[in-house]
Nucleic acid binder design. Structure first.
Length: 618
DNA sequence: GCAGTCACG
DNA sequence: ACGTACGTGACTGCT
């Protein structure tokens, strides 16, 4: 056994590297003592990378530890070590992990200790920290990474283990990805940092438990978040079928298209269509007038600007207002094809496992409002209007796709939270909320083309986002005077929104600029934009509507069918013969009462591909 | 590493 | 009283 010493917060700690059967026994004796004493044990893994389901994926080190002692098991070296890690992991009554979803799935895949067995025994320090302060360091918060949290709660001098390792990879002439897969298993820094991660996690648990008690964070909220993390990890493990043949062909087609338009743009002097500066210069050279500027002061040449120059509306249909600028047309078409190829088609193919499934990372508690995010691939942001990308994602063999989305959930949540009387009455009466608002604002007038309704809808969104007249005007295309008039009327007919905003802002100011949500979430506000409190409250509570629905689906035995959460929507895959029942079960979980406001959702049953739910024919 | 852009809810 | 759209992930160019 080799032992590395280290100092944390002025105290000596030991990192034992297990080398043989005798060391394994010593490690297991230590673990047995922890179990006897009822002490939680921190667990972490070092692996060949992040793509847990890729072929050749390996668990390299498994680490266990408490606040003073860490044990590093070189699992990659053989069965002896993997078996020990498996035995201990199965026996520990309390496990602490920083970002459990990842290590759960690594242990599930590489050690055969199932996610279902690990979840009930785990405390996730990342979840705990996020419930204290969900902000990243760049947003002025404590951060939620191990390094930032350690510096804040344990020892300002704690090393940035990931960053320092990256430096070592560089000195070994390895990229970051190559480094994690190839650094010698007995590299002393690798071993030390692997051990430090569990020591820090163990100490973080102690600190965060104290903070949770001090701040009165409800244990039920913490438990609920762990449950959601489990449900999301389950969905990640299941993954989704990707039609590889279709995706390869699509990727080729998009590549050709992108190149063809890129070539066309080159004729007008644009070498890189992704360089806003080159595009702006070339357009000016063609005599176009560019008036809008970005926040940084550069001439704006984004999609709306280019579409207008190409005489296209937001649906890419000819307007007929001017002669299309051929460069603007070529640039937007090339950019779109290029992005769709690299961000979607290529990422699908890169992340495919051996059985043709993608396993996106579902970060169950990602945004500062508690919203989830999905990466590798970013399945929450697939193009929706054109179904060519969604066509690549399929229900399982013999299954059909089901999606169920909440009806205007953020408007309903706002009505519920702010107790907006007339809004609640209209929702309960089953009225179209935006038409109803139009009638309150404008009285009984004709609304040919639904422009007034659209304006009222835009103002509703403006309220949810905390926006002003100019934002609503930009979104709806209405002139600012009409927007200002409608907004004044809106505040008059729904006075409770403004009132709630004021109350929330006042309460936050009295509570260290932190607003508390109905589920007990702490959401820090930025001092210079406290008006965002309406958005934070509404977005966060809407996220918890989805979270509660996911828990209810789990209770109803529907977890095996769930594939993805998409903010206000759940995607599922079910055998064709059972689809109706599964769809009704999901609907049941997504229909409930929130402070007297019905939250409703309805499911669509599609065909094999995700695209079929958006009108695709397969 | 930041700015700009673009995909989504 | 005024004015502020909200939250993400991912890619490319440029420094």
């Amino acid at each position: 056994m080799r032992t590395h010493g280290y100092q944390l917060a002025g105290e000596p700690v030991e990192i034992h590297v297990v080398e043989d059967a005798r060391d394994v026994r010593e490690f297991e004796d230590w673990a047995a003592r922890q179990i006897m004493a009822g002490c939680p044990v921190a667990f972490d893994t070092e692996t060949t990378g992040l793509d847990i389901y890729s072929t050749g994926y390996r668990l390299r080190l498994a680490q266990f530890g408490d606040s003073r002692t860490a044990w590093v098991l070189p699992v990659e070296r053989g069965r002896l070590f993997a078996d020990a890690a498996r035995r201990v992991l199965r026996d520990l009554p309390r496990i602490v992990i920083h970002h459990a979803a990842f290590d759960w799935l690594v242990a599930d895949r590489c050690l055969g200790v199932r996610l279902e067995q690990l979840y009930p025994r785990t405390a996730d320090t990342k979840i705990m920290a996020t419930l204290v302060d969900p902000r990243q360091v760049q947003e002025g918060g404590v951060g939620t990474g191990l390094k930032a949290l350690s510096a804040h709660y344990i020892d300002p001098a704690a090393p940035d283990t990931q960053e320092d390792l990256t430096g070592i990879f560089r000195s070994l002439k390895l990229t970051k990805a190559e480094g994690f897969a190839n650094i010698p298993l007995d590299h002393p820094t690798y071993e030390t940092y692997a051990g430090l991660d569990v020591l820090l996690t163990s100490r973080l648990l102690e600190a965060l438990e104290r903070v949770h008690t001090e701040l009165g964070i409800r244990p039920a909220l913490l438990e609920y978040e762990h449950r959601i993390a489990f449900i999301c990890a389950h969905m990640q493990r299941t993954g989704l079928v990707c039609d590889a043949e279709y995706t390869k062909a699509l990727s080729g087609r998009l590549g050709e298209q992108s190149e063809q338009y890129e070539h066309k743009a080159r004729r007008y002097g644009v070498e890189s269509i992704n360089s806003p500066k080159q595009v702006a210069d070339a357009l000016l050279g063609m005599g176009e007038a560019l008036t809008e500027r970005t926040a940084g002061g550069a001439l704006r040449v984004d999609k709306p600007v280019l579409l207008a120059l190409a005489d296209l509306d937001s649906s890419w249909e000819r307007i007929g207002a001017r002669t299309p600028n051929p460069l603007a047309d070529a640039v937007i078409r090339s950019k779109r094809a290029g992005k769709w190829k690299s961000a979607y088609a290529q990422t699908f193919l890169e992340t495919l496992d051996a059985s043709g499934r993608v396993h996106p990372f579902i970060h169950s508690l990602a945004a500062r409002t508690g919203r989830m995010s999905i990466t590798r691939p970013a399945l929450q942001t697939l193009p929706g209007r054109d179904v060519m990308i969604r066509r690549a994602i399929l229900a399982d063999e013999g299954h059909v796709m089901i999606s169920c989305d909440f009806d205007a959930v953020e408007m309903r949540v706002m009505a519920a939270l702010a107790d907006v009387k007339r809004m609640k009455t209209a929702i309960l009466a089953g009225e179209d909320l935006h038409s109803y608002t139009r009638s309150l604002v404008y009285g009984d007038v004709d609304d040919p083309g639904g422009h007034l309704r659209a304006l009222c809808k835009g103002i509703g969104f403006g309220k949810i986002f905390g926006g002003g007249a100019s934002g609503v005007a930009r979104m709806t295309g209405a002139d600012e005077d009409s927007v200002r008039f409608a907004m004044r009327m809106y505040d008059r007919v729904f006075p409770e929104i403004k009132r709630a905003s004021n109350v929330w802002q006042r309460e936050a100011a009295a509570n260290g600029m932190i607003t508390k949500t109905v589920t007990g979430r702490r959401l820090p506000l930025d001092r210079d934009r406290t008006y965002a409190v309406v958005n934070y409250q509404v977005q966060s509570a809407a996220r918890d509507c989805l979270g509660q629905a996911l828990c209810d689906m789990h209770d109803a035995g529907l977890l095996e069918f769930l594939r993805l959460p998409v903010h206000d929507e759940v995607l599922a895959s079910a055998p064709a013969g059972e689809a109706e029942g599964v769809a009704r079960g999901i609907e049941k979980a997504m229909n409930f009462d929130l402070y007297g406001v019905p939250i409703t959702a309805s499911a669509d049953i599609g065909k094999r591909s995700w695209g079929s739910l958006k009108g695709g024919d397969y």
